[in-house]
Amino acid sequence: MTLSHVHLLLNHVPTVGTAIAIALLVISLIRRSDELKRVSLEVFFVIALLTLPAYTTGLAAQIQIQNRPGVSDVMIEAHEDAAIWAFAFMQLTGGFAWFALWKRRRGGLARGSMLAIVLLSALTMMMSARTANLGGEIRHPEILVGGEDVAAIEAALATNPPMITANQIGLLVTDRTWLWPAFESLHFIAMCLIFGVVLIANLRLLGLFKVWSFPAVHRLLPWAALGFAINMITGMMFMTGSPGMYADNTSFLYKLGCLMIAGLSLLYTTAFEGPWWVGAGQDAPRRVKLVGAAAIASWLGVMYFGRMLPFIGNAF
């Protein structure tokens, strides 16, 4: 399996998934169901998580398909330019959804976050739909309507260029000598922040530090989420600046896989019942311990495969 396969597997998730999450949120508001609202927030988080490989593997698909007869590079770039904004708004929506879940678990209401999620998810839906349509037009002429052809679409795209393109963001990284080392430093500092909190929270679930209840360590989770956000931004900047280093890199594929498990474990420890009810001096149930072990192992995997990008893979 290559990263291009992963892109084909996941490229409908942001559009269809966001639509499902919005539908769940609307139904929860109509039915005044707190449980359904929680589920919609969880779906927003999972969709944001899956959008990460959906976006990054697109670069691998681009390298595979560009320069082939009948494939327009202009349309591929338009798809990429739309995707980077859809990705950013999707991550913002997922971030607010995570914060609302964390606050609700602690008994708060997070009204501001809910409002932000409603607005951001609507924007994300529009951006994802446009991205999906532009992506489809690259290789599916059957969706061209009203006698459109590739030349007409290229001309239309040229008359209405985006304010900031993915290429410009890439050049921002590669043209400034200070940016890569600064972001690399921040990437490692944020990694320490994430892993520190992950270790404390999940070692507690595995039976260490029993003097603390899980809700006591649960309040630290936003620090891990902040680290995650920093690494998402810095990591995406590296990838946009030097896509060739990641697009066909086996180690990056494994890193993405570990990141998905790590993200899901963060959702579990943030929002689910199992860990929350582990009080001071108590032992966590076996299934909760299993998630704790998976969380630590997956973050170790993220770090290992990240470090091995140049050795197992072809980066740098």
Binding site: F99, K103, R106, G108, A110, T177, W178, P181, A182, S185, L186, I189, A190, R219, P222, W223, L226, I230
Partner: peptide, 30 residues
Amino acid sequence: MQLAAIVTAVVLVTVVIVAAIGVAIDRHAD
């Protein structure tokens, strides 16, 4: 030398901003 100074400044400023955001979020914990 100039490069190291810029990198250090960017990292320090970002760390301070992130710490401030973290402290602000922590206020929602109780």
